[in-house]
């Protein structure tokens, strides 16, 4: 996907993004509501009309070759798509006749733990059960590419974990998965590569390792008293007076060197540090930085 633009009237929902998803990987599109995630997926699905840029999905142009593409692609919409009056089994049997890929309703009922609910009207299912049925339809016949729009929104932690298992199974079977989410831990647990979208643009893109390495790590501790003269560090230092001393926060790309210097300095003065913490940059930090508009758009 190169320089994708999508307009709705005067509103530009997607403002020039480049995305590349490799075969066999799980790719997560992170972002707040209104960041343009669903709009981007709709272009991949062949539903959204782009106003600029070029897009290839499995080598096909989704806008003009949707027919050929959908045989190889399974889609889970963000919500809905069900006839409430049909039962779970009827829904899958209809799907069996609608989709070109072959699969068996029984297998999917079992895989997604819906066998006991097979004769229940879809309108009477819980949110989690509906989401499972939704996923079952998206992975029907094991398509080459599976697009999932917020597959775990509204699920309890247990169902979320089981959905993750199902997504990982797809990858083990060699399928490519593109998903959107606003849960950071979901992206961390599943995705090989991540793009963080904000206001219609991709702010950060890459593997989790690359993204985290690109941002400074940090450490913090409470130093008794006013802390006086601190040792020289390569990163930035913040001080904040607290009840029993001063909280020091250091953000640095040289975590080990700066932390060693800091600990040596404290040891020389016989200081007892409290609440000492050191961590690499987290996805959460980067995400919040993107939302606050700190991260430069690439």
């Amino acid at each position: 996907m190169r320089d994708l633009h999508v307009h709705y009237g005067d509103f530009e929902a997607v403002r020039g993004i480049d995305l590349e998803v490799r075969r066999g990987e799980i790719f997560a599109l992170l972002g707040t509501n209104g960041a343009g995630k669903t709009t981007t997926l709709e272009v991949l699905e062949g539903f959204g009309q782009r106003s600029g840029g070029s897009v290839r999905v499995l080598g096909l142009d989704p806008a003009t070759q949707r027919g050929a593409l959908r045989e190889r692609m399974g889609v889970q919409l963000q919500e809905g798509g069900f006839v409430d009056e049909l039962t779970v089994a009827e829904t899958l049997r209809l799907w069996q006749r609608m989709v070109d890929r072959t699969d068996r309703p029984e297998r999917l009922l079992e895989r997604f733990e819906l066998t006991a609910r097979r004769d229940v009207a879809v309108g009477k299912l819980s949110g989690g059960e509906k989401r499972r049925l939704d996923l079952a339809m998206a992975v029907w016949g094991s398509p080459e590419l599976v697009i999932l729009d917020e597959p775990t929104t509204g699920l309890d932690p247990e169902s979320r974990r089981r959905t993750w298992d199902a997504i990982q199974e797809l990858q083990e079977a060699g399928r490519t998965v593109v998903l959107t989410t606003h849960y950071l831990e979901e992206a961390e647990a599943l995705a090989d590569r991540v793009a963080i979208m904000h206001a219609g643009r991709v702010a950060v893109q890459g593997s989790l390792g690359e993204i985290l390495a690109s941002r400074p790590a940090g450490f913090s501790a409470i130093v008794p008293g006013g802390a006086g003269e601190l040792p020289a560090v390569s990163g930035t230092v913040e001080r904040e007076p607290v009840d029993d001393g001063t909280r020091i926060r250091v953000r640095t790309t040289e975590l080990q060197r700066d932390l060693t210097g800091f600990l040596g300095w404290a040891a020389d003065r016989g200081m007892r540090l409290t609440e000492l913490r050191a961590a690499p940059a987290s996805l959460a930090e980067i995400y919040h930085a993107v939302r606050a508009g700190e991260t430069e758009v690439e």
């Binding site: 539903f47 959908r70 692609m73 919409l77 919500e79 798509g81 409430d84 609608m98 989709v99 339809m137």
Partner: peptide, 17 residues
Amino acid sequence: GRRHNRVLKRLRTSGIS
């Protein structure tokens, strides 16, 4: 009704024209 519940949209991801 089918459009409102996104049934049309889902069916457009199936094989039907």
